[in-house]
């Protein structure tokens, strides 16, 4: 039986293998997505995923289980990824003698958005997730998706419709928060307004 987020948050501090694995299954892919969106290197992102979980577990004694576990992990992941990104960028800049060419990492709003999108996508049934991926990431038309999957066009359309409605419901708060952030600075650690954690 799946453990809900509140129970995961309560049991994660000092938790055993099963809890660590459950937290990884729930949030590991989203952590990886945040890391990859920043470092843009799969091996480096895997290292960030590893260090995020190690640091989260080490710091879990200070975690308030009344808070949400996901945003807390997101904040650790973003910090780890940016540290990794800056170190690599600095080395490359030194080696190329272009210290002025170090790019800034993606904004906190941007990384929080990919975090939320990844969590929402992972909640979709596999057949709907495949259709969404092909439509958005591979930019295939419904007819091309039908051919790829070997299913009738109508099936693809209905899956697509269900999936997109589900995603829109799951992600409406992200768009609202982005609109708010565009006109005001999001306070650190303020999840009550649906914005990204610090």
């Amino acid at each position: 039986m799946a453990i809900d987020d509140r129970e995961l948050a309560r049991r994660f501090p000092g938790g055993g293998d099963a809890i660590v694995r459950a937290v990884y299954e729930r949030y590991g892919r989203a952590v990886y997505t945040v890391a990859l969106s920043i470092v843009r290197d799969q091996a480096q992102a895997a290292d960030v995923l590893q260090s995020t979980f190690l640091n989260a577990w080490r710091a879990s004694a200070n975690f308030d289980p009344e808070r949400e576990l996901g945003p807390w992990l997101y904040a650790i992941a973003r910090r780890q990824a940016i540290d990794s990104y800056r170190k690599t960028a600095r080395v490359e800049a030194v080696e190329s003698e272009r210290l002025d060419a170090v790019e800034q990492p993606p904004s906190i709003e941007r990384t929080w958005e990919v975090w939320e999108v990844r969590l929402a996508v992972d909640l979709l049934p596999a057949d709907e997730r495949d259709v969404v991926r092909m439509a958005w990431f591979e930019e295939l038309a419904h007819s091309e998706i039908a051919e790829r999957l070997g299913v009738p066009l109508g099936t693809v359309k209905s899956r697509s419709h269900r999936a997109h409605r589900r995603l829109a419901t799951l992600l409406a708060h992200v768009v609202d928060a982005n609109r708010s952030a565009a006109s005001s600075v999001v306070a650190d650690d303020d999840r009550s307004a649906g914005g990204p954690p610090a």
């Binding site: 990859l36 992102a45 990919v114 996508v121 958005w136 990431f137 930019e139």
Partner: peptide, 18 residues
Amino acid sequence: VLDALGPSLRDRAVWSEP
């Protein structure tokens, strides 16, 4: 909603597996 999130839905990071 989905058009607003299009850049993320097209982002390889969202679809990559560790």
